[in-house]
Design a protein around this nucleic acid. Structure first.
Lengths: 130, 130
DNA sequence: ATAAACGATAACATTAATGTTAGGGTCAAT
DNA sequence: ATTGACCCTAACATTAATGTTATCGTTTAT
C-alpha cells in the first residue's frame, strides 16, 4: 500500500509517517516510480509506534527497542524496562513540580477569597453602624 | 545601576533581563552612552517577575497585571484571579495526563516482574523435576 | 490531453525562555 | 595607549513532533 492509504488506516499524517521513516522506525520499500510501498502489517507497526509515543517516549527511545518488541513479547526485550523506569522517574518529577505549583496557585486564589470576605465584612459593618 | 549589577543582585542573566524588557516587563532608562540604567527598586520588580514565572505564567500573562501588583496588594488586581484559575485548570489537566501515563507505565513495569517471576518458577520446576 | 488526486523532496514555522556568538562601543586603570 | 571588564545590537541555536507550503513528477479518469 502507498503512504496515503497507510495514513488513513492508522490516523497518522503522511508527514508523520515520513518523519518516522527518517527516524528509522519504519522502512518502506520503493516502487519503480519512487513511491513508498508499505506491507500491510506496517499498520500494526505504526499503531505500536503510536502507543509508545502516547507513553511519552521519544522516537529515539522507541527506535532502540521497536525492532525487538515487534517480534517478541515486550517483556523479552531487555532494553524496554530501563526506559520505562527512567520515564517513570521523569514523570514523577514533573508531577511533583506541577503539584507544588498547584499548591501555590490554590493558596494565592484562597487569599483572593479572603479579601472578598473582608470586603463583605466591611459592607456589613457599614450597615450595622450606619 | 547597570545591567550587570542588576543581574548579580537578582540572579537573572543579562540576556533574560534584556528579554524581559523586550516583553515590556521592565523599562530602564538609558545613559548618554546608551547603557541601560535601572532604579534600585527594579531588583524587587525582577524578583516579582521571577516569582510569577515560577508559577508557570508566561511573560505575556505577567505583563497583563505586573503594573498593578507592583503598586497594590495582588488581591486588588482583578486581572490576576482569572489567570490563576486558568493556569490551575491547565495544570490539573497536565497532572491528569501524567497520572494516566504513570499508571500505564507502572502496569507495563509490573508485567515485566510477572515475567521474571514466571522465569524463576520455570527454573524452580526444573530443579524440582530434574 | 487535460484535470484531479496522489506522491516526492525540501524548507520553513511552531513554542518560549534562555544560551551563545559575532562584531562592535565604553570606561577605568595602568 | 593598551588591556580588561563592561555594555550594546543582532542573529542563530535549543527541543521534537508535526503542520504548512512550494515545486515538481505520476497516475487515473474523463
Amino acid at each position: 500500500m502507498k503512504i496515503g492509504e497507510l495514513s488513513k488506516l492508522t490516523g497518522v499524517s503522511v508527514r508523520s509517517l515520513r518523519y518516522y521513516e527518517q527516524q528509522g522506525l519504519i522502512t518502506p520499500t520503493r516502487l519503480e516510480n519512487g513511491y513508498r510501498e508499505y506491507h500491510k502489517f506496517t499498520v500494526e507497526e505504526v499503531n505500536t509506534i503510536k502507543f509508545y509515543l502516547s507513553l511519552g517516549l521519544s522516537t529515539d527511545q522507541i527506535s532502540s527497542f521497536l525492532h525487538c518488541v515487534l517480534k517478541n513479547n515486550e517483556t523479552f526485550c531487555t532494553e524496554v524496562l530501563p526506559i520505562y523506569k527512567e520515564k517513570l522517574e521523569e514523570i514523577d518529577k514533573q508531577i511533583q513540580m506541577l503539584t507544588n505549583i498547584k499548591s501555590n496557585l490554590e493558596e494565592r486564589i484562597r487569599s483572593f477569597n479572603v479579601e472578598i470576605y473582608n470586603k463583605k465584612e466591611l459592607e456589613h459593618d457599614h450597615e450595622k453602624y450606619s
